[in-house]
Design a protein around this nucleic acid. Structure first.
Length: 240
DNA sequence: AACAGGCTCAACCGCCTGTAC
DNA sequence: AGTACAGGCGGTTGAGCCTGT
């Protein structure tokens, strides 16, 4: 028996949300709270898929959404977290209050991955690439819109497989982390303005701890994730 | 000014996971 | 234990804007 679609798609609105739809959704959630996304559109009088409502709320309408450019310290967190976790955008977003996974994903794809490539860092492995690879990559990035659109599934799968090579444990779904600070953090090696740990690129900016986020310093955040990875790794060994 | 190509980001799609029954 | 459903996630798309020629 096949899986039922998340919603009947016939007769539903798609594409850009109107101000009226936004108002309906916001009003409904303010009255009844989040959740029950499947039944929400009917109750709120929206001709939208429940998933679409959830996405609109999470990525745009939520009152705690932070708008505007990504700050350098936020960028550092993204780089460090991506180096540790790969494309676990929701986990990374959990460390950036007011930022959404979609926003971070977009920022990574449009700015950071490009930036890394320009300074000779592979955005997937976070390791230095040689000049030959850089040239190759540059030429491929200049391909036209059509070529970009024709990117097929197979290619993306192989990228996903590369990510798996990080051997990053699949995280449990959580909204945020709260862990004890680990004091066993080894200082990063400096290479110009780039920061490497054992030849593994973890950031462009020198972390400015005087402008750290209200979640704590970057070092602390980084420590937490290292500890998390350590714990998960220990757990695997215990079960093996 | 007009056009083409590039860039950005909101939204969609399909799969995965957790949970209730 | 098996099944179905709801929610969540990451990858991808495409409309609209920007920029260079």
């Amino acid at each position: 028996m096949g899986r039922a679609p998340c919603c009947a798609k016939v007769g539903l609105h798609r594409g850009q949300w109107t101000i009226y739809e936004d108002t309906l959704l916001t009003n409904y959630i303010q009255l009844h709270g989040e959740g029950n996304w499947r039944s929400l559109p009917n109750k709120a009088g929206l001709l939208r898929c429940g998933k679409s409502c959830r996405l609109r709320w999470m990525n745009y309408l939520r009152p705690d959404i932070k708008r505007g450019n990504i700050a350098p310290d936020e960028e550092d967190i993204i780089l460090k977290m991506h180096a540790l976790l790969g494309n676990r955008w929701s986990l990374i977003a959990g460390r950036l209050p007011g930022r959404t996974d979609n926003e971070i994903k977009n920022y990574w794809n449009t700015h950071l991955s490009k930036k890394l490539r320009e300074i000779g860092i592979d955005p997937i492995t976070h390791k230095k690439v040689n000049d030959h690879d850089k040239v190759k990559d540059k030429s491929s990035s200049q391909k036209g819109k059509t070529m970009k659109r024709k990117k097929n599934k197979k290619e993306t799968t192989s990228l996903a497989e590369i990510h798996k090579a990080h051997d990053v444990p699949k995280p449990i779904r959580v909204n945020s982390f709260s862990m004890a600070q680990n004091d066993g953090f080894s200082p990063a090696k400096e290479n110009g303005s780039y920061t490497f740990v054992d030849n593994f690129f973890i950031g462009v900016h020198e972390p400015d701890l005087t402008t750290s986020t209200n979640q704590g310093s970057l070092e602390k955040i980084y420590d937490e994730y290292l500890q998390l990875l350590q714990l998960t790794d220990d757990g695997k060994k215990m079960h093996a």
